[in-house]
Amino acid sequence: MTRITPDRVVGIGALVLAVIAPFIVSSYWVGALLTQMLFLGIVAASLIFLSAYGGMISLAQVAVYGIAGFVVGNATTNGNTKGLNLGWNPWWGVIAGIAIAVGVGLLFGALASRSVGIYFLMITLTYSVIANLTFGQVTDVSGFGGISGIPAPGAIGRVEAHQNRLYYVALVAAFLVYLLLRYVARTPFGLTLQGVRDDPIRMASLGYNVNLHRTIAFGFASFVASIGGVLFVWWNGHIDPASIDLGATIDVLVIAVIGGLYRLEGAWVGALFFVIVNNYSQQISFIGPRFHTLIGAIFLLIVLVSPGGLVGLWERALELASGTHKEPSDRTPIEVGPVESHV
């Protein structure tokens, strides 16, 4: 069980670096880049989980993350011109935010669960557009200006003053999410999900409720995405409809694809790459305003060179280094077309 593999060495090395990062990099890096990397990675991990284990590429993860964020904002603030201004304790806000996001996620999942491939993608894109427009137009809960002054719980304190605290909270959350997703993949729920991904018709004749399973998987991924949403509003202190617009939706897809859609690790690899490129390209005056052109070009390059993203490149490098050619991969390529018509 405790064999030393290159994957493990790199994984543990990355974890150690993440733990000591506040002592070796500037507080700007920790507060602005690494914390953001962690919660974007959590959202991307929810997408990768659905795609790698469930065969569902969802564009609704940012919508769900936004729902959690808006609920936290409405529940825990006071004195905004728009929104509910409930002024609850931040922890109650967390519970409400996650619960409502999961509830909406289950509803989204139920409606999309009959569709596969490009149709599933389009339906989840619709969710993301609906969420964006709803928060823009319903001023009772947000309006275009959004919700400001969202507080983190007292133990975390004011984020500007204690950047490391939120960073460590996000690090623990990301690590737990990673362990949880890996664990769940080997449970009856996770194995069944992989069966549903590979052959829904076979699973149905073995006695499984394929659509319900997809729905619950979607709800579970919503739970994960909503954790990212809570961290986001604590980090940002503010959320508005632009936080979950089409651009944000595509950013998370780009993160997942650049990192690698087949492995959970890809979520944080992609997120780190994304925030660094985003940050440094802003400092180059020629590229700054053209960040999305740059990241789009990188996206294209990576899709062409390595469908498994950066993590896939790493795997290939390992293969070359050890001179072995891998056994047939245990990851089924993701089907984008309809798998088979359900009669």
Partner: peptide
């Protein structure tokens, strides 16, 4: 093993159990 496990689980309860 996993193929047969899924075939055994199919007609039993516990499809959604998220713990081993």
């Amino acid at each position: 093993e996993d193929n047969l496990y899924l075939a055994v689980l199919g007609t039993r309860s516990g499809h959604f159990r998220p713990i081993s």
